[in-house]
Amino acid sequence: MTVGDAIRKAAARLSSTSDTARLDAELLMAHVLDASRSQMLLERMRDAAEDHLAEFEQLVARRLAHEPIAHLLGVQEFFGLDFAVTPDTLIPRSDSETIVRAALGAARPDARVLDMGTGTGALLLAFLDQRPEASGIGIDASPAAVRVAAANGERLGLADRAQFVRASWLDEGWAAPLGQFDLILCNPPYVETGAALDPDVRDYEPASALFAGVEGLDDYHAIVPHLGKLLFPGGVVVLEIGATQEDAVSQLARESGFAVTMQQDLGGRPRALILT
């Protein structure tokens, strides 16, 4: 059996559970070959697959059980950078690149940045990668997530400008030790409790980073009243929101003294609220 044959057979099996079955099969095979997908497609499709079939079949079986591709590969691309991911963090998604783009357009180039609920560190590290004069802190309630983010900072060569610490906005006095910032980024939990999610998300990503009460707004209520005290004069906040939450979160922000603008993601959905 050739590499191409194995990919075709796996894609047929994966089509029952994945909308990207062929891509999934290609990525998994490239992973076991220790090659890039493009290199595999150009140079390896006629190679014999026997030496790699056992490992490949194990990964395909896990994907059939809805385990996310990012967990199987251990990495997810975001804003042109590769981030290590684990089940302790949300997988960075392309929708969240809207937050980085909005921040790049709104914040000063040498901003001191706070990333709240940093997870893999994707928002902070992507911003710092684009702004060599900036520096920042990422906080997360999960010590395991903090370790993942710190490791990503090291891998990407940004550890000298990015610090990651354990802190939770649900704890008393959490904001006081952090100081003030020119830019605050935040992708908080905002899924309604009980919402129907794909098993790829529901069964494999941390519930604490997803769910935020019956309306999905609990964490915004905890976060937004503190933001003014965390900002330097002239600072800006960029919040990620769910597609139906623009009005509710905007009203909460205005009640805390902010002017609000909205930026859509590439799918045309409300995604980033910019608070000044």
Rank of each mutant, 00 (worst) to 15 (best):
M1V: 10
T2A: 14
V3K: 12
G4Y: 11
K9V: 09
K9F: 13
R13N: 13
R13K: 09
L14G: 13
S16G: 05
T17N: 09
D19Q: 12
L27F: 15
M29F: 12
H31F: 06
L33H: 07
S36D: 15
S38L: 13
S38D: 11
A48Y: 04
A49D: 06
E50S: 15
E50H: 13
D51I: 14
A54C: 03
E55G: 13
F56S: 02
Q58R: 14
V60P: 07
L72A: 15
L72W: 10
G74M: 13
G74N: 14
F79E: 02
F79P: 01
G80C: 11
F83Q: 12
F83A: 07
P87N: 06
P92H: 05
D95H: 12
S96Q: 04
I99W: 02
A102M: 05
A106R: 00
A107Q: 07
R108K: 14
D110H: 08
D110M: 13
R112W: 03
V113Q: 01
D115C: 03
D115K: 00
M116Q: 01
G121W: 03
A122P: 02
L124F: 00
A126F: 02
L128V: 03
D129Y: 01
Q130A: 03
Q130M: 01
R131C: 04
G136K: 03
I139C: 06
D140S: 02
R147F: 01
A151K: 03
E154C: 06
E154P: 10
R155A: 15
L158C: 05
D160H: 05
R161Q: 11
R166Q: 06
R166G: 02
A167W: 03
W174E: 02
A176P: 03
P177D: 12
P177C: 12
Q180D: 04
L183I: 03
L183F: 00
I184G: 02
Y190A: 06
E192P: 12
G194I: 11
G194R: 11
A195F: 06
A196R: 13
P199A: 12
P199N: 11
Y204S: 07
P206G: 12
A212G: 15
V214S: 14
L217M: 14
L217G: 09
D218N: 08
A222C: 09
A222Q: 12
I223Q: 09
P225M: 13
H226A: 08
L227F: 05
G228M: 14
G234S: 08
G235C: 07
E240W: 00
I241K: 01
G242N: 06
E246R: 10
E246S: 10
A248S: 15
Q251P: 08
A253R: 09
R254S: 08
G257H: 14
T261R: 13
T261F: 04
Q263G: 02
Q264M: 15
R269L: 06
P270G: 04
R271A: 00
A272R: 03
L273D: 08
L275F: 01
